[in-house]
Design a protein around this nucleic acid. Structure first.
Length: 288
DNA sequence: CAACCGTGGCT
DNA sequence: TAGCCAAGGTT
């Protein structure tokens, strides 16, 4: 496969979106918060929440000083609210184990709650400028097409990290740009549904294009239906408690009119198991 | 490894 | 409209 770094870097310099976390001096805490919010949530939805979050909690220690309930409430309707809980836990861990400074070491980052392979390396690379492969769903789609000649990536695998690492320049600054540019290309040009190959800076070396854009199938798992799901019930419970006072409300009044009573009970107990709500006597509330 | 975990916009 | 998709992580 020919060199793709040079055209990617040139393209990125001209076409990168102006995103808050790309501003100079945005800070490792801001990058970490942004990466939590960006897990499975579109950029356009994240930006206003990110700015409100950082205005309220400009440091890990400021967040750690508040109750988890405040994090869950501030998270609002961003989705996957356990990310709010994990981000709060990570802030406590950063305060207690790292002197309030977001760690730079990948293994230290990986040990934080809610931080996995992607987020750990994204912080190390984009906040600190170190040289690591950063592999997200965009990266995997770009590599699947440009390198493997497939229409869609397979399920995430550990070897994706090595595959990306192999094509990073040796210079950490350039490597960081290639990481960001590959993600950006996947997010804006080499998109999942209708790719814009006519404007792609690496079309001339794309294996998928060379093969005539074959439909190689899609072995990704389909998302479970949301309507009528336990997740929907959990979301409804949590929405009520976010809007309630700190005392919460009586458990029997939680989405009392939910059609499936067994599902309602499952939602409440599983949320309590997850630590997203507390059940005290006959009441339910966010975790204090 | 597969299942599970929210929410909203887009086609 | 119903399904797809989104800067993933944990169990």
């Amino acid at each position: 496969m020919p060199e793709i770094s040079a055209p990617l870097i040139a393209w990125y310099r001209r076409n990168a979106r102006d995103l808050p976390w790309r501003r100079a001096g945005f800070g490792a805490w801001g990058v970490l918060v942004s990466e939590f919010m960006l897990q499975q949530t579109p950029v356009t939805r994240v930006i206003p929440h990110l700015e409100a979050w950082l205005a309220r909690w400009p440091s890990p220690t400021s967040l750690a000083a508040d109750a988890p309930a405040e994090a869950v409430r501030q998270w609002a309707n961003l989705g996957y609210p356990r990310r709010a809980l994990w981000l709060h836990r990570a802030a406590v861990e950063i305060r207690d184990r790292h002197g309030g400074i977001v760690p730079r070491d990948v293994d230290a980052l990986l040990s934080l709650s809610g931080v996995g392979d992607y987020t750990a390396r994204a912080v190390a690379v984009f906040a600190y400028g170190d040289r690591h492969p950063v592999v997200d769903t965009n990266t995997r789609r770009v590599l699947a097409r440009a390198v493997e000649g497939r229409s869609q990536p397979g399920p995430p695998a550990r070897r994706d990290l090595g595959a990306m690492s192999d094509r990073l320049p040796g210079d950490p600054v350039e490597a960081a740009i290639v990481n960001a540019a590959t993600m950006e290309l996947g997010a804006t040009v080499c998109v999942a549904r209708v790719p814009r190959c006519d404007t792609c800076p690496i079309a001339h070396v794309c294996a998928w294009r060379a093969a005539g854009y074959p439909d190689t199938g899609d072995d990704r798992r389909r998302q479970a239906r949301y309507e009528g799901s336990d997740r929907q019930a959990r979301g409804a419970v949590l929405r009520v408690l976010r809007d309630a006072s700190a005392d919460g409300i009586r458990s029997v009044e939680l989405i009392a009119d939910w059609a499936d009573a067994a599902q309602r009970d499952r939602a409440i107990t599983s949320l309590a198991d997850d630590g997203l709500i507390e059940l005290i006597d006959d009441r339910a509330r966010l975790p204090q």
